[in-house]
Design a protein around this nucleic acid. Structure first.
Lengths: 217, 217, 217, 217
DNA sequence: TCTTAAACGAGACGGTACGTCATGTCTTAAA
DNA sequence: TTTAAGACATGACGTACCGTCTCGTTTAAGA
């Protein structure tokens, strides 16, 4: 064990300033002209780093772009903890929408859009961006169920889909602003449901989902 | 005017077979290996056409891909009409998810992702794909409110966001399958809400949304 | 046959001006700073051509350099034809030495030296530079034998080695100038031999070559 | 002085085994795949040394290669002395050809070719390789003249050129093998000359060399 | 029929970026 | 103070596509 630690310590250390310059250059290029303008060559030139150095630490453009995005989230908003799962989720959604509405949101949109067909980009998105938020949301939803604030029969993952995914697509497709008002409406909708009269328990609903066929598409 | 028509009529006519071969090759390339694999060079080689010919008729890769997609569209599933707004929406969502889950859905996803910056691509998406479905959904939601099946105080557009947008993003980001099971869960979630105990009216909820601040992000 | 000719005629034709620009740039680079300074990148930049174009016509740096050298031999001296094989060979050797003594000789030296370990360079040298001269020399030697000017028992290829190879190595290793005087001395030496008294026929010599062992080296 | 000795003695001592490993690796790489395959990176990897260490002791690839060659030299074959100048020269040529035909000859050829522009390499060649052989040959030629075995009017240096230079260039350019048979043919050619009938004295020849002009080249 | 203009295949061309490799310098921790 | 490890800026490598541009052929309408 000690041997491994010692072995690891050999050689010149990673130059933090260079890494920062690379990430900064990458971020600027995306922000200025979109994901298509993000070239390894350009990043190398703008940052003053060698291409080798970039490839040493980021295996792909996707990895670099994702890291550039993540590293520029001006200190991530702290996970809310109001004691109410509903409030926490709403705040988390607002935070997400806000962070996506600024420059860094444009950057993210470029990354996701430009790298739509790049498996690595998607992986990085799931892992580094969506993942943490979902983990937080999942934890809060479970806490809400435990505290009796939320119904015990909800499908946690699907609730997370209903709450968070519209934010991403609205941003990416330019379908409208993700302001607090819209986020609150979305939260309220998913919270209260739309059926009238609101069912006392979910047990009353399932029969609706028995026989309906879907027509071919 | 007649002169122009005459002038236009001179010379060799556009070769329909060639156009079909080009669109077919483009579609196949996207379907087989994604939007990245769609290269003008590749389409020319696969279709037997010259690059000049492709550029003569399609100004960009996005235009070519869009045409390739449209030319391969199966006829749409008919709008459902079961008498129940909830059922109709569920069927419409299933239909959407199905049509996006096949090959042509993959092609569409690639196009949308790849052409995110292209206003024409987005316009086509809003007009041709999302628009009609939203119009149908809006109509059905209003009918459901009128019939008493749905609560009168819902925000129709936000409900449509909660119902349809997760489908698009799930498909485009490859976050998971859009099978009937997941669609039903989503429908049920939005229908019933998640709060416990389910509120009798939405009037009971708004106070939850008064004081909660969002932390900076 | 006609079909083949027609097939060949398809497509845009090779741009002679571009080829000339490329060869000129390559020649200049070698002449200015040696073979090491000859980079495909540099040639592309200096000539204004794309790298693709260079690689389309020359598979390697060696091929390009050789062609650049060959194309810059200001009109090759015509093959001499004085009626005497000895005179013709002497003139050919003088011509070779002269052409190797000028700038183009420096270029050749760079090519041969710099590409010494490159099989392609050697192949190009044999094929395009040494080959034609040897072919001429071989033909003249045979004519001299036929006319009785030269002895019938000489080994033509070895005579060519003795006459031409010293010129190349003297140039490449910088062992001394290849002026007319030296060339004439060399010619005279090979012509007359060095043995005393000159043997009437080669038949008198072979016994010298029977028993002598070589010591290990 | 003692202080200096002490100062010098400070720190880790130069590792002889490392130096040997470096030279061995360099030699092997040249022998295996030619001078091109000799990379500082490769030597470092193969020898287990750090690049810094190599650069500390050898300023250039040429220096390293030269050292690698010299350190692997077999002891030279002894100068022959049969009493016949012709035999001695023939044996010396065979010895040279043999020593250049082995692995170390390939290494030398690579070094010479690769380092053509390097004055030090050429100096080493002239001093260490060609020089001694020429000195020996010159001495023997003069002895042959004195003994009446060779004609008194020969140009000693040019004869040495005709005898030895083809061997070097044949090896370096890969124009063919330098086996005993070819060496003997070369010796015989220079010995006997090629003119027919063999001139009784060189005095009969010079007039051939009076008027012949060389055409421009 | 003959002309003429457009569409077409082929493919050469100037570029941009790719991802890899070797160079020679520098920095670190161990020996 | 030397060493092995290895990070670093530099710059060339050879390849893949881009979008533009000639070429000569093919087709079909108008003269």
């Amino acid at each position: 064990m000690e041997a491994e630690i010692l072995a690891r310590a050999r050689g010149r250390k990673r130059d933090e300033a260079t890494q920062a310059a690379i990430l900064g250059a990458a971020y600027d290029l995306i922000a200025a002209e979109g994901y298509r303008a993000l070239t390894m060559e350009g990043v190398a030139a703008k940052s003053g780093a060698g291409k080798t150095t970039i490839y040493r630490w980021w295996p792909s453009k996707a990895a670099l772009a994702t890291d550039a995005y993540v590293s520029h989230l001006n200190e991530e908003a702290p996970d809310p903890d109001t004691g109410s799962a509903i409030q926490d989720l709403r705040i988390a959604m607002r935070n997400l929408a806000r962070s996506l509405s600024g420059t860094s949101g444009q950057v993210l949109a470029c990354i996701l859009g430009g790298g739509r067909d790049d498996p690595q980009t998607l992986y990085m998105f799931k892992e580094k961006i969506a993942g943490p938020r979902r983990a937080f949301g999942r934890e809060r939803l479970r806490a809400g169920i435990a505290s009796g604030e939320l119904r015990p029969d909800i499908n946690v993952d699907v609730v997370l889909d209903a709450l968070f995914l519209p934010i991403y697509v609205r941003l990416m497709m330019g379908l409208g602003p993700c302001d607090d008002e819209w986020v609150d409406e979305l939260t309220k909708t998913v919270l209260s449901g739309i059926a009238n009269p609101p069912s006392a328990t979910s047990a009353a609903l399932p029969d609706v989902f028995v026989s309906a066929p879907s027509t071919a598409g």
